[in-house]
Design a protein around this nucleic acid. Structure first.
Lengths: 253, 253
DNA sequence: CAGTGGTCTAGACCACCAC
DNA sequence: TGGTGGTCTAGACCACTGA
């Protein structure tokens, strides 16, 4: 392939970038992510082989590999030698590993917490919700409140806010324990990453009652904003955790 | 190069592994990490070029690149196109990015907190210290207590424990704000990664006084264990943080 | 056994930097 | 201008999977 041909190979996704053409493997990755966003490749699906993808996009197998490897590093794909490359699924094992950081102090095994839904409701977004989720003035949100148990003890009181536009009729659904699985399966919304802000707070009377401790008890407040594959703000979740027998694990690497 | 030659190329570091020979790029990385541990490549040093390293180790440049890239991903090295590859330095910018997760709620800029040392002492390790730092019975530890300020307010009360064996005469040093820089420069101990466990606790009277709040005030307790390049447990640090105007930032990716 | 991803190599060219 | 890392390609072989 000539130099000119190589330099002229710019996929549509990269053309409106102001900083010149991105590397080919990045454009290749963009093309693949687009297929995930559009649901052409759905969770659990097997991708075509590297050779086929390379032929289809007119790039070398090495370039396809670099794109797939980086997506696997971001947990969008799972690769198995000898079997193939698959779209990642939000099963409990992944949630536990990627999105659930609360672990018991004295046990080697992390458990997925059981949930009891307290309330599901829809309403006009408050200022805080509009700001945190990037919503416009008239937007509506779905609110979920639930209580989560670990080792048989109520440990987490959770308030979740979702843009109603993205999750039509979710309030009529049966709310499962694994919400991110529901978002993906029912609404085609894949949570790709999240940002959490932690504080120590004193519990108010209502939350204290849910968690079976006295008012004013210190709790870990986890404020999570979850982003979809496309980068949209999709879920705002505030969790109040009693951390007598648990801790939040953070790896600094 | 023949197949037999390739398969027989096993560096010493990999020979005592029970699971068969590791990939060549991993062995190459091991050889490079060894040079960092032994101080042959010191913080700030420029590495030889990929071509030179490849010739020296009798592997291809692509294999050297894969090893260097993975080390750069782990922040052990810094690579600059056109300039070269350098051993990472524990400057304040890196500490701030990698090891300091507390950010002000209403400000875009993260600041490095000023420190006031309360006490530096040496003593026999307690049970907790021995357990957390993997020390033997008679081991001695150096203990540092300090108070840290952000935006002019005392926000963090810190207790640090270090194995005395690794840091001879540290208690006579002038304790700088950037401890990890001191460990690296004075003692050749590079902090490579850390694990933090977070809890919400009620402050006792002593800590509350340091932090200028009332006893029982909720605080974020950060229990950090820092590991050296070689994987040894090198520092145990417990920080009590008042999080009225700050939060701990955790990215879930 | 065929097909997949994983490893390793070799070589070309590009973008950037310092001199 | 020469040297560095960054990108891209092509091809060979290895390790693993499943029919």
């Amino acid at each position: 392939m000539s130099i000119m041909m190589r330099r002229s190979k710019v996929f549509p996704a990269a053309q409106d970038l102001p900083l010149g053409p991105r590397p080919l493997y990045a454009q290749t990755r963009d093309a693949f992510v687009k297929r995930l966003v559009e649901g052409i490749w759905a969770p659990g699906d097997a991708l075509p082989s590297e050779t086929e993808l390379a032929a289809e996009l007119h790039v070398s197998q090495g370039t396809v590999r670099k794109a797939l490897d980086s997506m696997a590093a971001d947990k969008l794909l799972v690769r198995h030698q000898g079997r193939g490359t698959f779209v990642a699924v939000h099963d409990e094992a992944r949630i536990l590993f990627q999105f659930f950081k609360l672990a018991p102090d004295n046990a080697r095994e992390v458990a997925f917490p059981e949930s009891r839904v307290i309330e599901v409701a829809t309403g006009r977004a408050t200022d805080a919700e509009r700001q945190r989720l990037d919503l416009s003035a008239a937007s509506r949100v779905i609110r979920i409140r639930r209580l989560r148990e670990l080792a048989g003890r109520p440990v987490i009181a959770e308030k979740i806010a979702l843009p109603a536009r993205l999750f039509p009729r979710l309030e009529q659904e049966d709310i499962p324990n694994n919400l991110y699985g529901l978002y993906a399966m029912r609404y085609g919304v894949t949570i790709a990453r999240a940002q959490e802000r932690l504080k120590a707070v004193a519990l108010d009377a209502e939350a204290a009652e849910f968690l079976a401790v006295h008012s004013g008890y210190p709790a870990l407040r986890i404020d999570r904003l979850a982003l979809s594959l496309a980068g949209a703000k999709v879920e705002w979740r505030v969790s109040l955790c009693v951390t007598d027998e648990f801790h939040y694990l953070s790896e600094l690497v």
